[in-house]
Design a binder for these strands. Structure first.
Lengths: 244, 244
DNA sequence: TCAAAAGTGTTTATGATACACCCATGT
DNA sequence: ACATGGGTGTATCATAAACACTTTTGA
């Protein structure tokens, strides 16, 4: 039997995870502080090598997340983001990493473990700040993950999952504003989300407020896809036409 | 220095290519007939293992395509589709394959080479027919690739690239109909594509026809993205309400 | 003059945006 | 009364779908 194994070079396969959430009014990403070389002590995404030839990529992603952050991954929805394999992205050897995105609410605070010296939620504004140093090509990965998360809430009902079990339309709008980094018109937003079938279910309850009309409370409806999709306001062009 | 190389299992990294085009009025995919085990003689996507630790994933994809099909890959736009890594997708050993999609016009007929015994364009209707046997998980990959190609022409001007340098609106519409497998209203389609800025540029020429009004000829315009996007007709629900 | 294919006009419906305005509560 | 935020009404615009109709050619 012909075999071509002779020409297969020694390449390691890793998985990395961009776990995003909305916490404390900010889009945050789970980062670890590396406890091993290379990039010892630097911030990085949780991840690591496939540990067993019989481990699926998805399973490896879940395992690494649990190992390094202590987060419970049962029922966690992971989706492949991209595979990064530039020849020199890891100084030790050739590593191809399959990256996963998890964009999920309600995760606990992490507990460092495995090869991670520390683990914490970090606002993406800080993680992507030019002054923040990140290991490997993880800055690029986080940028890709944020963009994917932004587009996911355009056509799914996922944003509602970041609200409390009972929430107001304003709570939901703030999730969109945080993730997109754009202000939305509260009135049009209200009409839109209450008009989409299966998105919100009124509970009949109302908020008690300090000043202002009480808001109706809603629970998540059965829909997972949004029809029609929520539209992100177009990024305003740099204004080069000021005459005065 | 701490190292964790001891726990890195022996995994091969491959690239596979789903090369799609529109030829002879059909959406077609480039398939090879395998010249080596496993699945000797079976239809498969072109692809193979990374051959060198310094070869990027993109470069490996181009190399494999040229080796197995003889196609010229200069200027070819490849985009990552997905990474498939189920533990038993290859009977020999653990293989993680990074799949690329190329959806491009004007490719020549292939010439088999490398590990391919034959190479040919195959209509996707045949490739995905239940009676067609495909190696590994390549049926799934082709399905994913077709879906991606279908959505790409919704929001890009790529479809026009499958027409001759000068083409009519009907030529362009037929590309959409072939890729989507749906009939479109010629009149609304005409208004739509001629109304999108930068999509089509009238050359002033006309077709000579056998019966029927001559059609205006167009060239591709400078736009790459479509605003607003072309809408795929919604898949009709199975009609369970026929009463007569 | 007729068939065939190209292209235009018109109607109707949907949805986005902007924003005026009213509603319900705490102070 | 009034500030505060919740929620509705409405005009205007952009686009999509359906389809009647006109235009331009070859036979």
């Amino acid at each position: 039997m012909t075999d071509e194994a002779w020409k297969i070079p020694d390449i390691a396969v890793a998985v990395d995870l961009a776990v995003l959430t909305v916490r404390s009014g900010a889009l945050q990403v789970m980062l670890i502080e590396r406890g091993i070389e290379p990039h010892l002590g630097m911030l990085a995404l949780p991840g690591g090598f496939l540990s067993d030839v019989d481990e699926s990529l998805d399973a490896a992603a879940e395992r690494e997340l649990t190992e390094e952050t202590g987060l419970d991954t049962t029922g966690l929805h992971l989706e492949q983001l991209h595979t990064y394999g530039a020849p020199n992205r890891d100084p030790r050897r050739r590593v191809v990493t399959v990256c996963y995105l998890a964009f999920v609410p309600g995760l606990a605070s992490p507990t460092a473990g495995g090869d991670a010296r520390a683990a914490a939620w970090v606002p993406t504004a800080i993680a992507l700040d030019p002054r923040t140093e990140l290991a490997f090509d993880h800055r690029q990965i986080i940028e890709d993950a944020v963009e994917r998360a932004r587009s996911k809430i355009e056509y799914t009902t996922l944003a509602a999952a970041f609200c409390a079990p009972e929430f107001t339309v304003t709570d939901l709008r703030q999730v969109y504003e945080i993730v997109w980094g754009e202000a939305l018109d509260p009135r049009n937003f209200h009409r839109k989300v209450t008009g989409v079938e299966g998105f919100l279910v009124a509970t009949g309850g109302q908020t008690t407020r300090q000043g202002g009309r009480p808001a109706a409370l809603y629970r998540r409806g059965p829909a997972h896809l949004l029809h029609p999709a929520m539209l992100r306001p177009p990024a305003p062009k740099p204004d080069s036409s000021r005459t005065s």
